[in-house]
Write a protein that binds this DNA or RNA. Structure first.
Length: 340
DNA sequence: CTCGTCACGGTTGAA
DNA sequence: ATTTCAACCGTGACG
């Protein structure tokens, strides 16, 4: 059960144990870092533990994504793409086939051995969940390779190749044939979710996003809370895997009606109440979501130069003023205190 | 003081 | 429908 109220950390920030920080805050962390603010100051300013800031920044540098990794679920154990494909074939050829017959056939055809053959109940579930509508492609299939059925001991990475290493959340240790991501690489990159942040924001679609959209992990988009419906009431297509609870919890982020970035984000983020007030429904409600597409659109934006952040002059100047603090030390502390 | 790392207590969700 | 359990979470503390 998700608590209605989060806990308060040592810095006075609100968090929900076990749950990711809201994307608005993750975004701000990256924004501030890009503005040259030191992680320790970001930590203080946003009241997020420095360990977390460090992690989010590190992940961003590595993958270009501000999004949290996919939580929960489990990788298929016996229900590999190959197995699913065979089951589908059997079912197509003989729609009346029983699950136990499928099981026998998987063994007989050498698709599985007795150690990794799915149970009858698993097959039933596969039939129900993945093959119920035969015209519907399993999303495991798109990138299928003809690997033999997995040996139980083998890591799944051998079987499930990801379109990009980041897809697995930066934790997949550079699968074979998969070069490490040049973290310096600029813009064009694939987000680890089926939606780019900007896409989710409804501001802009990321072009290359579409193709890998339905891969293994993709249905999992940890809550992105901004109400996209503001700009595109028609684009109500479901955000895959969007948690209802998160929606409920975070749907309240402020967002300007036209979808332009909220100019006041810096201030509002800074002016959040040190402690949750009884009136607040969400532990995160005090944060405002600056929907700044530029930041997340890619990784390759320049701090100077034709910066895509122009809509943020307000934020930027505020932040730069902050950054410009002499040696940022006593200065930053006191400023942080006063701003907050 | 800063920052990378990790144990911990927690949540999630496909199998 | 319920349970399992490995994935991820942020905090707090250490070094």
């Amino acid at each position: 059960m998700e608590p209605a109220f989060g806990e308060v950390n040592q810095l006075g920030g609100v968090f929900v144990n076990g749950r990711p920080l809201p994307n608005a805050i993750r975004l701000r962390i990256v924004e501030l870092a890009q503005l040259g603010i030191r992680p320790c100051d970001i930590s203080r300013q946003l009241r997020v533990s420095h360990g977390c800031v460090s992690k989010i920044l590190a992940r961003y540098n590595e993958t270009g994504s501000i999004l949290p990794g996919a939580i929960g679920g489990s990788k298929p154990r016996v229900t590999t793409p190959t197995v699913v494909k065979h089951i589908r074939t059997y079912k197509q050829r003989d729609p009346g086939i029983f699950a136990w017959e499928i099981r026998d056939r998987l063994l007989a055809d050498g698709v599985c051995d007795k150690y990794n053959v799915p149970s009858v109940s698993s097959i039933s579930r596969i039939l129900r969940n993945k093959i119920g509508n035969l015209s519907q492609q399993s999303h495991y299939e798109a990138h299928k390779q003809h690997h033999p059925p997995p040996q139980p001991a083998l890591p799944y990475n051998h079987i499930y190749s990801y379109p990009s290493p980041i897809a697995a959340g930066a934790k997949v240790p550079t699968p074979p044939g998969m070069p490490a991501i040049p973290s310096t690489m600029a813009m064009p990159r694939t987000w680890p979710s089926s939606h780019s942040v900007t896409d989710i924001l409804g501001i802009r679609s990321i072009i290359e996003q579409a193709n890998d959209g339905s891969l293994y992990h993709s249905p999992k988009v940890e809550e992105w809370t901004l109400s996209r419906s503001n700009f595109q009431p028609s684009a109500q297509h479901i955000v895959n895997g969007l948690e209802k609870s998160s929606l409920d919890q975070e749907a309240k982020y402020s967002q300007t009606a036209n979808g332009l970035p909220a100019v006041s984000s810096f201030v509002s983020a800074s002016s959040m109440a040190p402690y949750p007030t009884p009136a607040q429904v969400s532990p995160y409600m005090t944060y405002s979501a600056a929907a700044s597409s530029g930041y997340v659109a890619g990784h390759g934006w320049q701090p100077a130069g034709g910066n895509p952040l122009s809509a943020h002059n307000c934020d930027i100047s505020a932040a730069l003023a902050f950054k410009g603090m002499p040696s940022a030390r006593e200065g930053s502390n006191s400023l942080t205190a006063s701003v907050l």
